[in-house]
């Protein structure tokens, strides 16, 4: 069950979107998310939809694969829709018992659902077409200006990439400890919530101890390989903007302008 966790899942393919610089993709995703909350009319909605599906097509990631990511938000989606549907004041369309559905409610619920779905689809394009390493590299470089106000950007990026490296190792370890404790008669399944939570203690304590030990070992190994922070470090794969990144920036700019104009005039 623990093996099903996939964080930062990457879908390898040879597409224009895959080849873009991670910084471009981060920027585009930000703009896209902003645009989701700007459109008010059907015309704006159409523009956003057009943009999204164009990018999905370009990314060569199968649509079915992306939709799978939506499963995680079904509950949130339902709650949002129900609240918007029944609790928006206005002219009632249908009313029964104490509930009534208004025209505004219908509109709000519809747009909110679309926004959420588009939000997940749009941001999953980023993680599906960018390897975790590229992503942390991109974050590190785009956030570099924050260094001036003493945000340890390099350290945060390093922590993220180490965390990604150790997730599968720690999952495997959890599995191992779980089996070892089961063999000694531990019971993780039965009982109420409190009992189940208590049963996790013999799992978590060894896991924490071993994680700390690993961290200590890793720190030594990094020091032995001359790691001393981000200063004076070079990169094997430095990020470099290419021609397509320029085009992408132009297209994203155009898209954003279109969404704003549609919000103004339509």
């Amino acid at each position: 069950m623990l093996r099903d966790i996939t964080i930062g899942q990457y879908y390898p393919a040879d597409s224009v979107i895959h080849k873009l610089d991670p910084r471009t993709k981060l920027m585009a995703t930000m703009v896209y998310i902003l645009s989701l909350f700007l459109f008010r009319s059907l015309a704006g909605f159409a523009a956003v939809t057009l943009g999204l599906f164009l990018v999905i097509l370009l990314s060569k990631v199968p649509f079915g694969y992306m939709v799978k990511g939506l499963k995680a938000i079904v509950v949130i989606l339902l709650i949002t829709v129900i609240f918007n549907l029944f609790l928006t004041p206005g002219e009632p369309l249908i009313s029964f018992w104490k509930l009534r559905i208004t025209e505004e409610g219908l509109k709000n619920a519809g747009f909110m659902a679309v926004r959420l779905i588009y939000l997940i689809l749009g941001s999953s394009i980023l993680t599906l077409t960018t390897t975790p390493n590229q992503l942390t590299d991109g974050l590190e470089k785009s956030l570099r200006p924050l260094n001036k106000i003493h945000v340890p950007v390099h350290e945060i990026a390093m922590m993220m990439s180490i965390a990604l490296r150790f997730i599968p190792i720690l999952i495997e370890e959890t599995d191992k400890i779980m089996k070892a404790q089961l063999a000694r008669g531990a019971d993780f399944e039965s009982g109420n919530l409190v009992k189940k939570a208590k049963a996790m203690v013999p799992l978590l304590v060894p896991l924490f101890i071993s994680a700390f030990r690993r961290a200590n070992d890793l720190a030594l190994a990094m020091e032995a390989r001359c790691y001393h922070g981000g200063d004076g470090r070079t990169k094997m794969k430095p990020l470099k903007y290419k021609g397509i990144d320029g085009i992408a920036y132009l297209l994203v700019g155009g898209y954003f302008a279109a969404v704003i104009l549609l919000r103004r005039f339509l």
Partner: peptide
């Protein structure tokens, strides 16, 4: 396991040279 830093073999091998500032 506790001395491999990167999630790709070649990037891990590059970790040391990166730290001492070897050109790309």
């Amino acid at each position: 396991d506790n001395q491999i830093i990167a999630s790709v073999v070649e990037e891990d091998v590059a970790f040391g040279p990166e730290n001492i500032g070897v050109p790309t």
